[in-house]
Every structure is written in structure tokens, then in C-alpha cells.
Amino acid sequence: MDDAFSTQNEILQIEGLEQSYGAISVLKGIDLRVKKGERIVICGPSGSGKSTLIRCINGLETFKSGTIHVTDVHNGERLRRLKDIRREVGMVFQSFNLFPHLSVIENCMLAPVKVRGVKKTEARERALYFLNKVRVLDQAKKYPGQLSGGQQQRVAIARALCMQPSIMLFDEPTSALDPEVVQEVLATMVGLAKEGMTMICVTHEMGFAREVADRVILIDGGKIVEEAGPAQFFDTPRHERTRAFLGRVLRGHPETARGLAHS
């Protein structure tokens, strides 16, 4: 089986994933395979389980049955321990979750030093590099509370990147942002995608999906309803529920509709 992995270059394999809270079933058997460099966008109505799905990947949520396998991109071996998985998988949250008592640069240096054992000087350089990449270098000495939402989220992306993960997970990264700053964060994410980062994004930003995704997945009621390339997903969706979902999204987000129309 591991041979199949490395030849197909898959770094994430989810099979039969099920999760429930008490009597309520949230994930009802999810199968997903992600290759290195792929960009996956997951969308769906609220409560569909999409957040739960990606949080299962890095162990922030446990699951009742099924398997999740993350492969080390460097040596092709399956990562077994949670701490190893979390080292290789970075996550950006809807509410940023920056550490308010540490400066921006300290936020970025903390994990490389404590988890990867990087020396402080090197961690600092790395932090400056990534902060520059997401274009908040001038805020390095400031504290999260002094930054705008868009800046904070970009710092959060830099913080995750400083761990040099092989997969980046995004859990509705722009949902908590003012509309004006959504674009700056999306632009950062597009930049990341263009550099070949393997990404799984849960988002409502259909324009972003159209531009960047290799595959768009609709999750509804705990199951994958449709999984297709963006052209097919948006223009000729196969399932009724996909059509209904797209219709709702476009009605609710005229700017998204414009984005889709222009791309």
C-alpha cells in the first residue's frame, strides 16, 4: 500500500471518516485523497461537517471511525504520531488565534524553536522572511492587538508557514474579516498556491476557488456530494444539491457572483 502512496505522490489519504457528537452524526463516511501540490477547496452549507473534517486531519477533533493517513513529503513514510503530523500540517483559523501576549515576530518564532528545535537566530530570520512574504514585515515588533484583522490573518499564515509544513489547512480564513480586507488575505493565499503549496481550504469564497482550486468539493449532511474541477463544478454541476448550494451562495454574495462571472 505504501508503494501506491509514493508512486501516486499522495500525501493525505482519508477513508471512511465518521464523526458524531452524541446522537448527531456530523461526518458520514468521507473519502478523500490529496496529492502533493494539489489545492482542494471544500465548501458547503453551515453544519455540513466541513470544518470538522479538516480539524480531524490535524487532530483538533477526534473521529469515531475511518482512517486518516498523512505522509511525510520528504521520505514518503506515513506519519504516525500526532505531534509529527502537526509539525507537517499547518493550520490557519477563522479567528486567527494569534497569541496576544507575544509580538508578531515572537508568534512566528515560538513553534520553530520549541517544536523543530531551530536556533533562535535562524527562527528569527525565517520569521522575517515569511512576514515579508505576506507583506506585514513592518509590523514585526507590534502586538496582535495593534493590527487590523487582515494583518492579523496574514501574520497567522506566516506563523504557520514558519513551521515549513507540507500541507496547509485553512478553516474559513476570511469569514471573520471585514469585506475590505478579505482580498488581501485571499491574494496571499493565491500567492502560496502558485508556489506549489498543498492546500485544503474550507471557504465560501467561490472566486478564489475558481481561480486556484484543482478540485472543489461540496460537503452536505456529512457526505461528499460533488467533487470536481472548478470548471465543471461551477459551470456544469452534476448534482441538484450543488446547483441549489451555488444558487444560494451567488444570491447571498453578489461580489462572489461578480468574481465568478469575471473569471
Binding site: N58, N97, A160
Partner: peptide, 24 residues
């Protein structure tokens, strides 16, 4: 979210409490 952010970065439990949670 602070706990989650720390865990997602791979911080050990003791690092999480010592560097992130308890100072706050």
C-alpha cells in the same frame, strides 16, 4: 482558539501551557 492555535503548531502540552496559556 489559543489552545487550538498552539496545538496546531505542534507545541507540546507543557509548551502550550508554559509559553501560551499561563502567561495570558
Amino acid at each position: 482558539g489559543q489552545y487550538e492555535g498552539a496545538k496546531a503548531l505542534g507545541l507540546s502540552t507543557s509548551s502550550m501551557y508554559w509559553s501560551v496559556v499561563v502567561p495570558q
